[in-house]
Design a protein around this nucleic acid. Structure first.
Length: 469
RNA sequence: GGCGGCAUAGCUAAGUGGUAAGGCAACGGUCUGCAAAACCGUUAUUCCCCGGUUCAAAUCCGGGUGCCGCCUCCA
């Protein structure tokens, strides 16, 4: 299969370094606040990567860390008057709740920076011994100029960047781009004993340490948001390759941003939407559908219209599954070439948008057969259902019973809009009486009244069902 | 200033050398008492512009234009 490698700036054939085993690391959140849609995108994208790699029969060891010690956590702790450990615990718990709600599988391992202090100290020590780092007042900095490959991931040269550096430079550093491996703690801050000072790890070193400790010197895939390419991932490469003298990561994979009004969603712009906020308005699979209907490397614009569209698309698929279920009952069949075409799209750099196109083609074919003669095509319909379910397994979609899906959807909408389902059923009964009496004027009046409340009626096979507009 | 990405119908979105997927919307048809849903058909001689390579380009190369991101914590 092909994966776009940020390091090569092109798609490359992916084969695990160790046959049959994929080792993947993805940068997880810094746990100091509620997770937003940007975190959701990264998590869902790599969830699908994880699922797809597993579906290829590979044994995938997927590590996603928690950054649980950091300036922002410390600040948050000071602001709220609790221990920074408690801040981290709280947001780890919330993150898990959000991810579970979104149907994101738990990674194989979820290490925390604070659980790897010894490995971090060893790595820093080794960099000092190799002359790649130096100590200043209890801090330890990485000596960027000592690593010749610096800039290879982000495609920059140190010389080119200096003009653009807008940050106040710490005069104690040899080079403005040297970065902290170890930070001496101020009084009252969390700290660990080290040869240099009581302190804590810098941001970048934890990922290198955890990556190596769980996945080895070299591993297959390292992922994260595009905003991590520089400096975070660039620095990880520098540390790791300076320490071990070997390739750190074979494939670098980066997901695009979530935008609001064509602008990057971010904490600093204040235009972010938290996952739980969005979950209160939309079905979790609608969120996944929205995120997966665009290629993972492209920016995706979060708008009410886009969410409505994703919800509609999801309903179309569930409606078809429901029809199949009602028409042919349980049972499996041969999926024809739908699964193969789906896999082909996914094998091309996780082209979920293209893959969903295949799903919709399968759905149309199923509807066609259902319109024609469900009995005659029972085997093929079962096959399509199995195929769609299989695609859903990779995408983390279509996992609910179709009947339950629609019931839950109307229940939630009913709650939100303050409608009474029994009342609606009664109106439907009245209307059907009127229809029986061929009093279509009355029937249409009832239907119009319901429509004004946002209730759309559907007459099918002698039964009337309803949904919300 | 440096680096990178993107530009495909009304909207959205795949396609990266062989003659434009899919979703939404619109219009016509089938079905229906009428609708809705579903299905069928129509909707991009053309893929931001200008050159070039090629038998053949949305796809490759060169030059423009526009938008976005990174260069500072950020998924």
């Amino acid at each position: 299969m092909l994966i776009y490698n940020t390091l090569a700036r092109k798609k490359e054939e992916f084969v695990p370094a160790v046959p049959g085993k994929v080792r993947m690391y993805v940068c997880g959140p810094t746990v100091y606040d509620a997770a937003h849609m940007g975190h959701a995108r990264s998590a869902v994208v790599f969830d699908v990567v994880f699922r797809h790699l597993m579906s290829k029969g590979w044994d995938v060891l997927y590590v996603r860390n928690f950054t649980d010690v950091d300036d922002k956590i410390i600040r948050r702790a000071q602001e709220t008057g609790v221990e920074s450990r408690e801040v981290a615990e709280r947001y780890i718990r919330e993150f898990h709740e959000d991810m579970d709600a979104l149907g994101v599988l738990r990674p194989s391992r979820e290490p925390r920076a604070t659980e790897h202090i010894q490995e971090i100290i060893q790595l820093v020590q080794s960099l000092l011994e190799k002359g790649s780092a130096y100590v200043v007042d209890g801090d330890v900095y990485f000596r960027v100029r000592a690593f010749s490959g610096y800039g290879k991931l982000s495609g920059r040269k140190l010389e080119d960047m200096e003009a653009g550096a807008r940050v106040e430079v710490d005069k104690r550093k040899e080079d403005p781009f040297d970065f902290a491996l170890w930070k001496a703690s101020k009084p009252g801050e969390p700290n660990w004993e080290s040869p240099w000072s009581p302190g804590r790890p810098g941001w970048h070193i934890e990922c290198s340490a955890m990556g190596h400790s769980h996945l080895g010197v070299t591993f297959d895939i390292h992922g994260g948001g595009q905003d991590l390419i520089f400096p975070h991932h660039e620095n990880e490469i520098a540390q790791s390759e300076a320490a071990f003298g070997k390739t750190f990561v074979r494939f670098w994979v980066h997901n695009g941003f979530v935008n609001i009004d064509q602008e990057k969603m971010s904490k600093s712009l204040g235009n972010f939407r938290t996952i739980r906020d969005v979950l209160s308005e939309h079905h979790p699979e609608t969120i996944r559908m929205f995120l997966l209907s665009k290629h993972y490397r492209s920016p995706v614009d979060f708008t009410p219209e886009a969410m409505a569209e994703a919800g509609g698309a999801l309903e179309r698929i569930y409606a078809c599954l429901k029809r199949i279920q009602e028409a042919v009952g349980p049972g499996d069949g041969d999926g024809d070439d739908w699964p193969a075409r789906f896999v082909q799209a996914m094998d091309d750099d996780f082209n979920t948008a293209g893959a969903l196109g295949i799903t919709f083609e399968a759905v149309r074919q199923a509807n066609r057969l259902l319109d024609e003669d469900p009995k005659k095509h029972a085997a093929e319909l079962s096959g399509i259902r199995a195929a769609v379910a299989g695609m859903g397994k990779t995408l983390g979609l279509f996992g609910e019973d179709p009947e339950a899906f629609f019931q839950a959807a109307s229940q939630k909408a009913v709650q939100d809009k303050g409608l009474d389902p029994e009342e609606i059923e009664m109106q439907i009964e009245l209307r059907n009486q009127a229809r029986k009496n061929r009093d279509f004027a009355l029937a249409d009046t009832i239907r119009d009244q319901l429509a004004q409340k946002g209730v759309i009626l559907q007459d099918a096979q002698g039964k009337t069902t309803w949904k919300l507009a």
